[in-house]
Structure formats: C-alpha cells, structure tokens
Lab assay of single mutants.
Amino acid sequence: QLRFETNGEEQAKKVLEEAKKHNLEAHVTIENGKWVVHVK
C-alpha cells in the first residue's frame, strides 16, 4: 500500500484520478490537516 501526502484537496483529487486510470484502489484520509491518498 502506497501513501501520498498531498498539499490539499486539489492535489489529492489528481492523485485519485491517476490511480483510477491505472485501475488501482485508492482512498483519501485527512491526517493532521493533510490530505493523504492511500493506494493499493
């Protein structure tokens, strides 16, 4: 499982879109005010 700390909602959405293009499972959590994308 990969973990990407992003700078906010915009970047998190871009990472999610990329993951979906590659048929990867991804979800976002907010940790300590940071948007974190988890990709399987």
Rank of each mutant, 00 (worst) to 15 (best):
K13A: 11
L24F: 12
N32R: 01
E9W: 14
L24N: 04
N7E: 15
K20E: 09
E31F: 02
W35H: 09
V28W: 02
W35P: 05
H22N: 12
E10T: 08
Q1K: 10
K21Y: 11
K13L: 14
N32Y: 02
K14D: 06
E17M: 13
H22F: 07
K20S: 08
W35E: 04
E10D: 12
K20W: 14
A19D: 02
L2R: 12
A12Y: 04
E10P: 06
V39W: 02
V36F: 02
V15W: 14
K21L: 11
E5N: 02
G33T: 00
H27Y: 15
K13M: 14
V15C: 15
I30S: 06
A19M: 14
R3C: 15
N32H: 03
L24Q: 07
I30L: 10
E18K: 13
W35D: 04
E31A: 05
Q1T: 14
A19P: 00
V39I: 14
F4Q: 04
W35F: 11
W35M: 06
L16W: 08
V36E: 04
R3K: 07
Q1D: 15
V28L: 11
N32V: 00
E9G: 04
A19E: 02
E5K: 01
L16G: 01
A19F: 13
I30C: 14
E10N: 07
K21G: 05
A26G: 06
E10R: 05
T6A: 09
T29L: 06
T6S: 05
V37L: 00
E31Q: 06
F4P: 03
E10Q: 10
L2G: 10
N32L: 03
H38N: 11
R3D: 08
I30V: 13
E10A: 12
K34Y: 10
E31S: 04
T6R: 01
R3A: 08
T29N: 05
K13N: 14
K14P: 01
N32W: 00
V37W: 00
K13E: 07
E18N: 12
H38K: 06
V36A: 01
E17D: 13
K14A: 13
K14H: 11
R3Y: 09
H27L: 09
K20V: 10
G33S: 02
F4R: 03
Q11C: 15
E18F: 15
E25N: 09
V39R: 00
E17W: 05
G8T: 15
V15M: 14
V36D: 01
K20R: 14
N7G: 10
H27C: 14
E17I: 09
T29P: 00
V37R: 00
V37N: 01
F4T: 06
K40V: 13
E5H: 04
H22R: 14
L24T: 04
E25I: 13
K20T: 10
E18G: 08
L16P: 00
V37Q: 00
V36K: 00
H38F: 07
A19H: 04
H27F: 15
N32A: 03
H22P: 01
L2A: 08
E17N: 10
N23M: 07
L16K: 03
V15Y: 14
Q11Y: 07
N7R: 08
N7D: 15
V37I: 08
K20I: 13
K40Y: 10
H38E: 09
V15A: 06
N32P: 00
T6P: 02
E9F: 10
K21M: 11
Q1F: 15
L24M: 12
Q1R: 13
I30A: 04
V15L: 15
H22V: 06
R3P: 04
K20H: 13
T29S: 11
A26E: 02
H38S: 10
K14V: 11
H22A: 11
E9R: 05
V37E: 03
N23W: 08
T6E: 05
V36M: 02
F4Y: 14
T6L: 11
V39L: 10
N32G: 10
N23Y: 11
E17Y: 04
A19L: 15
L24G: 03
G33M: 01
T29V: 09
V36R: 00
E25A: 11
G33K: 01
E25S: 12
R3H: 13
Q11M: 13
E31W: 01
L2Y: 06
G8Y: 13
I30T: 07
A26F: 06
K40E: 13
K40H: 13
V15N: 02
T29F: 07
N32Q: 03
E18Y: 15
K34L: 06
F4D: 04
E5S: 02
K20Q: 13
L16V: 13
G8E: 12
K14I: 13
V36W: 01
E18M: 15
A19Q: 02
L2H: 14
H38Q: 07
L24D: 03
Q1C: 15
G8L: 10
L2K: 10
N23Q: 09
L16A: 08
A26W: 05
L24K: 06
Q1W: 15
R3T: 10
F4L: 09
E5F: 06
Q11E: 15
K20L: 14
F4V: 14
Q1M: 15
V37A: 01
N7V: 12
W35K: 03
E5Y: 07
N7K: 10
W35S: 04
V36Y: 05
Q11V: 08
H38G: 02
E9Q: 09
V39D: 02
H22T: 04
G8M: 11
E17V: 07
V37D: 05
T6N: 03
L2W: 09
E10S: 09
I30M: 09
A19Y: 09
W35I: 08
